[in-house]
Design a protein around this nucleic acid. Sequence first.
DNA 1: AATAAAGCTTGTCAAGTGTCCTAATTTGGA
DNA 2: TCCAAATTAGGACACTTGACAAGCTTTATT
Lengths: 226, 226
Amino acid sequence: MPYSNLETRKFKNISIAELAFPAREGGYSKGHETREQILSAALHLLVEEGYGALTMRRIAAACGLRIGNLTYHFATREELIRALLDALIRAYEIEFDAILQFTDELPEERLAEVCGLILEDIRTKKTTHVFPELWALANHDRFVLERVQELYTRARRSLLDIVAEMRPDLDPQGRENLALFISASMEGLTVFAGYEKPFEGQMGELERIAIQSFLQIVKTYRRTQT
Amino acid sequence: MPYSNLETRKFKNISIAELAFPAREGGYSKGHETREQILSAALHLLVEEGYGALTMRRIAAACGLRIGNLTYHFATREELIRALLDALIRAYEIEFDAILQFTDELPEERLAEVCGLILEDIRTKKTTHVFPELWALANHDRFVLERVQELYTRARRSLLDIVAEMRPDLDPQGRENLALFISASMEGLTVFAGYEKPFEGQMGELERIAIQSFLQIVKTYRRTQT
DNA sequence: AATAAAGCTTGTCAAGTGTCCTAATTTGGA
DNA sequence: TCCAAATTAGGACACTTGACAAGCTTTATT
């Protein structure tokens, strides 16, 4: 059990843990606690003020630490930020893995539920603020790019299962692309109907449009031979 | 004519000008030239290295200028960045306004063309790299948020016209949301199938999926009364 | 109580940041 | 040609940044 410390977890009403901290090993418990407080403070800073606010001093101040102490736990800023992004992304991965456990008989219902959860998550301040930062970072940092794409691979897993069940006739590449399109469609709504965005209030109808649209395209899509 | 200096413009094969510089007024022509070179260098830096690389010194170095000269043209960094983002966004707005001129008889064909152009643009390095930065900035800078949303309002305009023609029975709010969903869906693909992204090579099939899906949902969507 | 490891404080360092100021140089019209 | 305005150069300022080192305090274990 490499990772632990998740907070709550309710079936079909999943609340994402803020961060999934790596398993504690070695050192005193006090050290681990401050280590986790550092990452929590850094996440808070990232969400509230953006990536540019993630300086060693601001992170230290945000959790009442001296800079020297901060560099004791994370020798470099790079190391700290990697740990932060890893714990952050891992928390999402755990959520998506939980979604895989859905057991509705009809794939149509599962699709609606999965999309409902994702679109609900998109409206949270954390997700609305963090993911654009990740996308921007991914453009110039291979580590972030691979880590984010790994996350999305897991996120597509449940969509892929549903598509496969609904369309056993379709070849794997076509199914992959259908799941990818559905996932990307929802991610795109972040910028428009996410937390405090202009169309936040329209998310209800947008969700109906999205789900209806996704069901249709999955049912009817015919791959054209290239 | 407040803005000028666009480069090329071919009907239905639109290439976006890098930046749409504000009209020159007052001062020598040399001053305007360096001003534009500064913004071009800043854009290049933004695309190649991200927002974090936009420091006064790096921008100055990128166009062979001394910092003193840079601050003569743009007294503050804030002022420079605002000018950059404005010229950048304005270039996109000009493109979207041009799309409005499409005159195909069938709205279905216009939809396919508009989406084709947008998805083509998404695959460029500039768009793939710049927009995530804008989305991230918009979360903590009201100026950027409003400017970006203003851009998207124009981008949706052509989609809205098409939807209105295809669905005169639908109420305005429903049409707005359909256009919004279509626009957001395509934006979401940036992260997955944009420039040098993992599924860049799948953009062809993704485009077919998207257009087929958009046509279906526009044709069949029934707004549920709330 | 002793002790070694872990945790933390304090101070310092060079490098980088935005901004400002003064003096030189260039420009374009009179 | 000349000159005032526009532009450029160069340097300086106060401040922040990440990183480091030497010493002090706390912790857990024997």
